[in-house]
């Protein structure tokens, strides 16, 4: 309240943020859920003229039980594999340029079962923003491994830690020569909102990959969720960047992190899901992260 008075009076502060809420309180998400937090920021940035599609994922459950909903925007809940295809249909029916179509899906619904429909929708130039919120497992069914689960993470179907690497969805998407794609994390809400606005200003398909730490799934305490997101970026385990018409730019939090990255171990060891990782496995992960940092430095002169 005080902030608002200050803002109204002096015209500075957080006035760039839409004060309206499109994701209402009282939804059924877990405490500390950063996926719903991310969606809240995304919808604030998108504004009221927005059609939303929500795939089969945690978010659909969090909406509540019919006929109730926490979504204050017209929202279509979709089957698992077809979110991007349904978005093509919505866009074909709602052709006005000023209206946004945003499809939201989890990592399983994006990199695994939904990847074909997503590839098709991008290829046929559907004018929409596809958001993958990535909690790195099938959260809604109780944390089974997905293609997006990282190396070493224990899930209910990788009880001794995943042996394979996380699928590089960014590389898959960028191979479609998409006009705009970006990564984000709700630990950096202004960066996230700015990217959504940027994306929606561009015609054609857009892709946003959002890392969303999941307290129960990652086995971290509720109040650590934001901090874990910062550790992911700070250790360069997850890079924040955007690509517009093939022009790449690393976002400030990741630019800062690359100068003096936090050891990956500090990111992994605070999460219960990595508790089975040996020192050797952590070393392997660190080397992969180092290679990624080197790649970005060399490729983009950072």
């Amino acid at each position: 309240m005080i902030a608002r008075e200050v803002e109204d009076r002096y015209g500075f502060g957080t006035n760039t943020v839409n004060r309206e809420e499109y994701l209402l309180k009282g939804n059924s998400s877990c405490p500390g859920c950063t996926a719903m937090l991310a969606i809240r920021h995304i919808l604030k940035a998108a504004g009221p003229d927005t059609f939303v599609l929500v795939s089969a994922c945690c978010a659909v459950v969090c909406e509540g039980i019919s006929p109730n909903t926490c979504m204050a925007l017209p929202t279509l809940d979709t089957a698992f594999a077809c979110t991007a295809a349904m978005a093509s249909g919505v866009r074909a029916a709602v052709r006005e340029r000023g209206i946004n179509v945003i499809a939201i899906a989890g990592d399983g619904g994006t990199v695994d079962i939904g990847v074909q429909a997503l590839s098709g929708a991008i290829e046929r130039n559907t004018d929409f923003l596809y958001v993958c919120y990535d909690n790195e497992a099938y959260g809604n069914t109780g944390m089974q491994r997905s293609g997006s689960t990282p190396f070493g993470a224990s899930t209910t179907t990788t009880p001794f830690g995943k042996k394979e690497d996380k699928k590089d969805i960014a590389a898959i998407i960028s191979a479609h020569n998409i006009p705009y794609m970006a990564t984000a994390c709700p630990s950096y809400p202004m960066d996230l909102q700015r990217k959504v606005k940027r994306a929606l200003s561009i015609e054609g398909p857009k892709f946003l990959h959002v890392l969303t730490p999941c307290p129960p799934g990652w086995r971290i305490s509720t109040e650590k969720a934001i901090e874990i997101g910062k550790l992911a970026v700070g250790s360069c385990s997850f890079f924040l960047y955007e690509t517009e018409n093939r022009s790449f730019s690393m976002s400030k939090p990741s630019l800062d992190a690359m100068k003096n990255p936090i050891p990956v171990k500090d990111y992994l060891r605070v999460q219960g899901r990595f508790s089975r990782m040996s020192e050797e496995d952590i070393e392997i992960t660190q080397r992969k992260v180092d290679a990624n940092i080197a790649y970005y430095r060399e490729a983009f002169g950072l």
Binding site: R91, Q116, A117
Partner: peptide, 14 residues
């Protein structure tokens, strides 16, 4: 579309 599943999904969306 790229599949029949998506064909009907797109119709459902519209």
């Amino acid at each position: 579309v790229e599949s029949e599943h998506s064909a009907l999904a797109a119709c459902i969306g519209a």
